[in-house]
Write a protein that binds this DNA or RNA. Structure first.
Lengths: 158, 158
DNA sequence: GCAGAAATGTTATGATATAAAACAATCTTC
DNA sequence: GAAGATTGTTTTATATCATAACATTTCTGC
């Protein structure tokens, strides 16, 4: 209920509601923060030529190799149609590969290549310094944990 | 320094670092939350056919009428080249207008039209219910304030 | 006052992201 | 076995975003 606290007695009475300050709008502040963090990510990974989505895909494959292409895509909120080109890129770079599963000949199970495993070491090193920088911005790990908790409440939708 | 706390004694010693859990990666959680909040915004404003950027532009013009086109664009991180079409849209809908400033004949000062002022009332009503919904997700205004504070720390870069 | 540099709005273009429809191959269900 | 669903794929359309180039206007140094 943020209304103008003091109405200037000389000014004509405003019928319009007071516009909200941009810096208090959740969506706006959230978007700006996300862009800033992604920019740092992009700068950090420029040498490795790795985009956030590619990082996430490699990370998910490493965590649980053999998952189906659609499963990985859906976990990341990527439409399976758009996932094809992304996976093509990782395959062409020799980092990951599709294997035809004998049980279900429609699906592809995803795995890291040996090169991909090697690449992960570099990737995590770069990521860790990036993440430490973000934690420093926040003020520490406790603040990071609090932020993550609040953010998860925001996205906790079906 | 999140390392696997207990190494399974039967398992072969892993030389690769443990992949970080996605739900702990600041950028990832941030991105997911931002998409979720924007989705709610888009749904809320579907009837008014208003995008987040358009909302922000109208809000900034209302807060401080007469600002130059480039000033508004820069505040929102929109390249002035991309701002042209956005402003064209608002002008064609009769919500805002460009006025040639006599002092600087290059620049356009931006103002709401009377229709635009009227539109703002609807806009704020819709926005408020959206924002209240987001605050509810967070658990209250205190949590909102804390979140905004943490997010500003993340984006507080030059 | 004038020449060169900078600012402003604009157009055009390319890259990227995202969504939807349609399709072939395969699997599931009945 | 037939009908329908799933999986990966291609194609297409749209939205977003960055860059370069341009004309007009203003500013700066001299």
């Amino acid at each position: 209920m943020t209304v103008t606290p003091h109405q200037d007695p000389q000014a004509p009475i405003k019928t319009t509601v007071q516009p909200p300050e941009m810096s208090t709008i959740i969506g706006y502040v959230l978007r700006r923060a996300q862009l800033s963090v992604f920019q740092d990510f992009l700068d950090s990974f420029a040498a490795l030529k790795l985009r956030p989505a590619e990082f996430s895909v490699l990370n998910l494959i490493a965590q649980c190799p053999g998952q189906k292409q659609s499963e990985i895509a859906e976990q990341l909120g990527i439409k399976r149609a758009n996932f094809v080109a992304l996976m093509d890129g990782l395959e062409k770079r020799g980092l990951a590969e599709r294997r035809k599963s004998p049980e279900d000949k429609r699906s592809h199970s995803l795995h890291l290549t040996p090169q991909g495993e090697c690449f992960m070491a570099e990737m995590f090193a770069v990521w860790r310094t990036h993440e430490e920088r973000m934690i420093e911005r926040l003020g520490g790990e406790a603040e990071r944990d609090r932020l993550v908790e609040l953010l998860e409440r925001l996205s906790d939708r079906a």
